[in-house]
Design a protein around this nucleic acid. Structure first.
Lengths: 199, 199
DNA sequence: TTGCTAAACGGAACACTGTTCCGTATTGTC
DNA sequence: GACAATACGGAACAGTGTTCCGTTTAGCAA
């Protein structure tokens, strides 16, 4: 799900192959937009994005007719990247460490979302499915991490993944520019989880 | 406090009299901006405001060098208007009715604040004093209304005005375009206040 | 390999912003 | 009524988002 290019409308059954240059440019735009959004927020000038992607304005508008399409695509892309990081962490570290590291990773994701929450509430239909997507991708991932840690006796077993997700996101918002603070708070949260574990 | 024009920086002890035309234009701009902001949000085009005020762009920028100055001035103006409405209501109606009507009036104030809350969190120093001003003007007003209603035995006496203010504002936000909903909810809130009153 | 066509490209051009500047008009005073 | 000082308005500038179309390229077939 996280692989393959995000097509404009994300679904064209007729086997029309996507041209290689089109694919390349879509990717370049997504990457460039992600960087620019992180640095300057989602209201950053379009030309800044096209310049960084080495692409003309026309190209951007062909792939993403509305600005909101680009934003939504970038968001999906980053949700995927963050969610997909979990299995690797779970394989490399013991359950508690994997959980901790993934939550840190998640705070990084949230921290780059300047102005996105505002855009999300703008009523633009392009964003309609985004919160659901967010939940749909992250909740199972976090549930797995939590279950593994609980099974290892590292944390309590009665924590709802969605609650923890929201709590972490809220913890991060006021201090998106202070890594240290966020880490301390997330660590505290995890210490809270450990309280009452059987180990 | 609600009278007299909001000077640019709101305080020039040296008795430099303000020219009558300047005063007139400042007022016209404030009125026009309030209408435009209510209709199109605080990001509405400047020319729309100057046109409605029958004024040139230069005039706007002389009185309000930063856009945020205009927004802040409009906001103060409306806070004043809303707060000043209370004494009249208290004189015309019995305490409970006055309280109810003023809260409705207050929801009207909140409902027109499209995008203002976003602007407020932008970190612009021009907005720094606004939340405090909000509280400073509204809390005493609401406290008086509550006290009067409590003294008449219409509502409980243990409600914090600031809490009620926040609750009402939060109640209103999700349905700024549905008068009916907001009124029902505010009425419910007031019924809650009445519960346990001595009458 | 070469030729051909549909697809995609890029950037100039357009429309619409916020903001500045300055010649002109108005106000208040002597 | 004359004259500074002040304020006015709108043209001009700079920086956006978006469209358009002549040019280039990828992919395919001979």
């Amino acid at each position: 799900m996280s692989e393959e290019a995000d097509a404009v409308v994300a679904g064209e059954p007729p086997g029309k192959r996507v041209r290689a240059d089109a694919q390349r440019n879509t990717d370049a735009l997504l990457t460039a937009a992600a960087e620019v959004f992180a640095a300057s927020g989602v209201d950053a000038p379009v030309r800044q994005i096209t310049a960084k992607a080495g692409v003309g304005a026309g190209t951007l508008y062909r792939h993403f007719p509305q600005r909101s399409d680009l934003i939504a695509a970038v968001y999906r892309h980053e949700v995927d990247a963050c969610a997909d990081a979990a299995p690797a962490l779970a394989a490399e570290h013991d359950p508690l460490e994997a959980l901790t590291r993934w939550l840190w990773r998640f705070t990084g994701f949230i921290g780059t979302k300047h102005g996105l929450s505002t855009a999300l509430h703008s009523g633009d239909p392009a964003y309609a499915g985004l919160p659901a997507y967010f939940q749909q991708r992250f909740v199972p991932v976090l549930r797995d991490l939590l279950d593994a840690a609980a099974e290892a006796g590292e944390v309590r077993a009665d924590v709802d993944p969605y609650d923890l997700l929201r709590a972490t996101a809220n913890l991060t918002r006021p201090a998106q520019d202070d890594q240290g603070y966020t880490r301390r708070m997330v660590t505290l949260l995890i210490d809270g989880l450990r309280y009452g574990a059987r180990k």
